[in-house]
């Protein structure tokens, strides 16, 4: 009996404590859709207050900068994002709810970061922005912000299904020295503590997010790399097909939650 008890607390060598600080019966409004809970509902009151106020949310620094970049001409084609897309508030509305999507030659999924860089290299004849650069994070957040409050609504049928299946398989696959899958933390144990962290459902609707621990804005793939490293698994490269498929699966898992970019998390 005693052994069994310990085994249930130790999943793959990671101690999981119980008791949630999160009030289950609180009315979370748009942040709760059926049994899907945004990471917002697991954040502390203080952190939520920062997200609630666009002025106080430090991610807006990056968004402001991106708003300027939207209309600045770069590259050999002599174009800015605005030259082709006009006002972002119209042309980018709803984009974040649909991505990742199948790329033009239907050979891979592309996320918003990759689409932005595709426009830079193919349409503007400008250099791609580096992953986790202030420019790419800011522009991704700026594009996604135009869908804020709209429900995530990714397509997973037809030719997209195989990519969705790959993403889903990744989610349930054990990996790393701790031999754990995403599921073990975010599906089986939300509301419990892993070391000092309150586990959430690991939803993707708020990215890029301003993380207090990072003291800056970061991408969903940075989060994936962190979660992989925590269980001592080899992380994949930013933008790797494995991560884009996983992103598709996560978005579909959180289908209906509102786009919350740029969120603020502990």
């Amino acid at each position: 009996m005693r052994k069994l008890y310990i085994a249930s607390l130790l999943i793959g060598g990671m101690a999981l404590g119980s008791t949630a600080s999160q009030a289950e019966d609180k009315d979370w409004g748009a942040y709760k859709v059926g049994d899907k809970l945004s990471g917002y509902t697991y954040a502390t009151k203080e952190t939520r207050a920062i997200q609630d106020d666009d002025f106080e949310n430090p991610a807006q620094i990056w968004v402001d900068q991106a708003e300027g970049n939207w209309s600045s001409v770069e590259g050999e084609a002599g174009k800015s994002c605005e030259s082709c897309h006009n006002a972002a508030s119209d042309s980018m509305k709803g984009v974040a709810t649909r991505y990742p999507v199948l790329n033009k030659n239907k050979a891979a999924m592309v996320n918003v970061e990759q689409q932005i860089n595709f426009c830079r290299t193919s349409q503007m004849k400008a250099k791609a922005w580096k992953w986790e650069s202030a420019e790419l994070l800011g522009m991704t957040a700026f594009v996604k912000l135009q869908s804020r409050g709209m429900p995530v609504n990714v397509k997973i049928d037809g030719p997209v299904t195989p990519y969705y299946e790959k993403g889903k398989a990744f989610y349930y696959e054990r990996r790393g020295q701790l031999d754990m899958a995403c599921k073990h933390c975010h599906e089986d144990n939300p509301g419990k503590y892993a070391r000092a962290n309150l586990l959430s459902q690991g939803q993707s609707n708020g990215f890029p997010t301003y993380r207090l621990k990072w003291q800056k804005i970061g991408s969903l793939h940075r989060r994936f790399r962190g979660c992989n490293k925590n269980i001592r698994a080899q992380p994949f490269a930013y933008g790797a097909p494995e991560y884009v498929n996983l992103e598709l699966y996560l978005n579909s898992r959180g289908q209906g939650l509102p786009v919350e970019t740029p969120s603020v998390r502990n």
Binding site: F55, Q60, I61, W62, D64, Q65, A134, K216
Partner: peptide, 10 residues
């Protein structure tokens, strides 16, 4: 962020 940016709301 290399460039320091200040925001004010009043």
């Amino acid at each position: 962020m290399a460039k320091v940016k200040a925001r004010v709301k009043s």
